[in-house]
C-alpha cells in the first residue's frame, strides 16, 4: 500500500472522529486544529460531528493530546483521543499510574513520521502502541542510537562544568511548573511541590529552589518517563529538562537492563521492584 499523504491521513482522522461522535460513544475527540500561523497548530476538542472538520494533521501537530484526558478523571462518556506513538505511551503511563481507565478512552491511533519537534528525532515508537482504530501502516520500532548520546557527551564534562551548566539553567527557570503540568508522568492529584506546609519545596523562583524542584521532579518521573518531550516543548525558558530525566533512564538501562516506559499498561517501574541480584555498590 502506498504511503498515505498528509491530506489523506487528515481525511481519515476526520472520518474516524465523526464516526465516533455520531455513534454517541464519545463526548469529544481531542486532536489539533489550525491557528492563524501556518507553522502552528493548537489542541482542539471536537464535540460535534461537524466540528470534526476543524481537525487537521500536518507536521506542526506537536502538542501531546493524552494529558487532556486527565482534565476529567471521572468522565460520563468516553474521550476520543487522536494519538501518535508518543501519545499512546502517555496513555499507557497514565493507565499504569491508575489515573485513567482504558475503558474511558476511544483511541484513534495515527502512525506518525515525526513532527517539527526536536524530540521526534529520538522517537522509537512511531506506531501507536494501543488504539481502537489505527490510521496508517505500522512501522518497525527502532530505538535510535542517539537516544543517550547527548547524556553521554554531557557526562564527560568535569563536575564543576556540569554544575555550572545546570546552575545557569536553574537561574533561568521561572518556577512556573509548566513542565509538570504538561508531563503525562506528573499525574499526582496533589504535587509534592504544592504542599508548602510540609516544606518539601520552597516557593521562591531562585536558583536554590529551582534546583531542588528540577532534581526532585527528575527523580519523581525518571523511572516513568516516556520521552515525549512535552516538558521541553512547553518550557518558556527553553530549559533542557529531558537531559535530567533521560539521565535516569540511561542509568536504569545500564544498571538493570533495557528499559523503556509506557509500552504497555502492565509494566513495572524500575523503582517499584528489585532483584536480589541487582548490582551492589554499597558493600
Amino acid at each position: 500500500m502506498a504511503e498515505l499523504s498528509e491530506a489523506m491521513v487528515q481525511d481519515l482522522i476526520r472520518a474516524e472522529a465523526k464516526k465516533a461522535l455520531q455513534t454517541g460513544e464519545v463526548s469529544c475527540v481531542i486532536g489539533w486544529t489550525a491557528t492563524r500561523f501556518e507553522d502552528r497548530t493548537k489542541p482542539y476538542f471536537a464535540q460535534t460531528p461537524e466540528e470534526c472538520d476543524m481537525l487537521i494533521w500536518n507536521r506542526y501537530c506537536i502538542n501531546g493530546t493524552a494529558k487532556f484526558a486527565l482534565d476529567d478523571r471521572y468522565p460520563d462518556k468516553k474521550f476520543g483521543i487522536i494519538a501518535r506513538g508518543c501519545d499512546t505511551r502517555a496513555i499507557n503511563r497514565m493507565i499504569h499510574d491508575k489515573q485513567l481507565k482504558r475503558e474511558n478512552l476511544y483511541i484513534i491511533g495515527v502512525v506518525c513520521d515525526g513532527k517539527e519537534n526536536p524530540v521526534c528525532r529520538q522517537c522509537a515508537h512511531k506506531t501507536p502502541l494501543v488504539c481502537d482504530v489505527m490510521i496508517g501502516e505500522p512501522v518497525q520500532d527502532v530505538i535510535p542510537e542517539s537516544r543517550f548520546q547527548e547524556i553521554e557527551a554531557f557526562e564527560k564534562l568535569s563536575p564543576d562544568e556540569r554544575y555550572a551548566y545546570w546552575a545557569k539553567q536553574y537561574d533561568k527557570c521561572i518556577h512556573c511548573y509548566a513542565c509538570r503540568n504538561a508531563c503525562p508522568a506528573c499525574n499526582c492529584i496533589e504535587c509534592y511541590a504544592d504542599q508548602y506546609r510540609v516544606g518539601w519545596q520552597g516557593k521562591a523562583a531562585d536558583r536554590e529552589q529551582n534546583q531542588i524542584y528540577g532534581l526532585t521532579r527528575a527523580y519523581h518521573v525518571g523511572d516513568r518517563c516516556i520521552e515525549c518531550g512535552e516538558c521541553e516543548r512547553v518550557c518558556p525558558m527553553h530549559l533542557p529538562i529531558m537531559r535530567q530525566t533521560r539521565k535516569m533512564l540511561k542509568d536504569i538501562n545500564d544498571l538493570f537492563g533495557p528499559y523503556e516506559c509506557g509500552l504497555s499498561e502492565e509494566e513495572t517501574t524500575a523503582l517499584g521492584e528489585f532483584k536480589t541480584a541487582d548490582p551492589d555498590e554499597f558493600m
Binding site: Y163, Q244, D251, P279, E281
Partner: peptide
C-alpha cells in the same frame, strides 16, 4: 536501587 540512581543523578549535576 533508589540511591544508586540518586548518586548518579547527583554526580551528573556536579
Amino acid at each position: 536501587r533508589r540511591f544508586m540512581l540518586l548518586q548518579r543523578l547527583l554526580e551528573y549535576n556536579g
